[in-house]
Design a protein around this nucleic acid. Sequence first.
DNA 1: TATGATATGCTCAAAGAGAGCATAATTAGG
DNA 2: CCTAATTATGCTCTCTTTGAGCATATCATA
Lengths: 298, 298
Amino acid sequence: MTIGFAHAELIAVLVAVTGDEPRVMTIRSGDALPSGPFEMGHRTLQSGLREWVQEQTEHPVGYLEQLYTFADRDRNNDIPGGRTISISYLGLVNEQSGAGRPGWHGWYEYFPWEDHRQGRPAVLDEIMTRLRSWADADPARRDHRHRRADFTFGLDGGGWNEDLALQRYELLYEAGLVSEAGCGAEANLGRAMFADHRRILATGIARLRAKIKYRPVVFELMPESFTLLRLQRTIEALAGLTLHKQNFRRLIEQQDLVEETGGTESETGGRPAKLFRFRHTVLEERALAGTKLPLSRN
Amino acid sequence: MTIGFAHAELIAVLVAVTGDEPRVMTIRSGDALPSGPFEMGHRTLQSGLREWVQEQTEHPVGYLEQLYTFADRDRNNDIPGGRTISISYLGLVNEQSGAGRPGWHGWYEYFPWEDHRQGRPAVLDEIMTRLRSWADADPARRDHRHRRADFTFGLDGGGWNEDLALQRYELLYEAGLVSEAGCGAEANLGRAMFADHRRILATGIARLRAKIKYRPVVFELMPESFTLLRLQRTIEALAGLTLHKQNFRRLIEQQDLVEETGGTESETGGRPAKLFRFRHTVLEERALAGTKLPLSRN
DNA sequence: TATGATATGCTCAAAGAGAGCATAATTAGG
DNA sequence: CCTAATTATGCTCTCTTTGAGCATATCATA
């Protein structure tokens, strides 16, 4: 039995928000995520990734965090006689940098069912119909499949949960409704990607959607100064949801995440909006998470 | 430049709670975490890990999740002329299985400063003293270092945050206060481990402490039926904190995580406690996370 | 039977979250 | 200049969740 040696590769999910669209950096006209070999010269995984992302895309990457390591044997991109380990990273790029340039694709192109800002997308009807027949196709697992579909797509009373992006993609994959599953062209839900890159993207989206709720990472996607509405729109773009304006600003302000720059902006045609900047010091001031455990005092 | 090939290894952080002690599975009398090569025969990373953990330890592993992938060049266990990629996993093992057997070590042996159930541990005084002098040793970074120490060890008004276990270890490492940092024997804070295994353990502890707050993973550590106090003690063991009894039970019950078995237990000498079991169906009923974003209705 | 111990129920106040009304400061159009 | 449209911002009110602790129940044991 051959043991222990493998080809190591780094894959990046680079995200930027331009206008109101969340975008991801791609290569091959949007068919794949940028990736490169993990070289001996690299001191750490992070620095390795930073190097070739920088040189390949010319974008300074701000925040960078490890996403997941994939190495399943049935992945499409295995090299013959060897095994590929793909270590994926999530990177956040400042708005300006990602603007308009080629290579950046809106991520809802790949996941049209994930954008609920204009209300529930019409594709969901088709998706649910197809999931129903998939569920019914196996009498033994029927009930469980229905419950799972209802749950991940928010039909079980719990409502839509944006964090479940990965679970939804995995369900569609299992049901053979995405073309990566090798089920022919009739399964055209969203744009496909090379190998399992779309799954990796889904992993990144899910991670980011979860993270913005308890860590101030959104600011990595913002310019130096911004209005609260721009901040809201950015978060809405990522979450694929619309937020309550007044409560959103109350939330941001009471957490002391931002401070006024003193300037205003009147681009939008109404009352000029105050400009804010991120208070970088909060990163070393607070934990920002807060326990949910009922502590006792002693 | 040599590229892309590396030695791949799997490392497991297996956790069980026996009595009131959280334990971790080790080899070499507690000096290292169990690890093994990632073999070509393995279909997936998870299944690969499951296989040799099962055969090596004879413990059925319930919950298993990927932790982190380490591959920095300065890791101690690099093989000459090659590079080791270590993919670490967190596994939860049922109480019975891990009981008493050799190989299981209480994790506070390695992190004595992390257990706050009997109040603030005395070691923390020594730690803070040493961190102070470390901070003062570099005038340029002095203030930043002090703030960081205060923050991670809960002296900045925010109080102790159990989730920061990894950050605390990393700070102690940077400050040269743990012997893995290669700073001689005078730095004897907690028991050391081989290579960077203690850092990996810290990663697992931090992940688990965070996760029990928003996912019902504790039940993987419990026997089929249990009293609410046992459940509380288990969580307290993991978090290194004491909880408010009445509020804890309110929390558990209102979330419908458990149901009564009908039986009771009177081992503890007082009023007999009702026995509960985990309602496995909640896993497919709800998301259990709940957004913190201020949604709007339309 | 009294005492100590644990289990379990319940209350009350404080903090947080959801929803929406009201007012302010602009621009665009007569 | 006046008015409508538009966006920003402030504030209130209610409902829920959380923190803290008192009170009662049910057992073992001296």
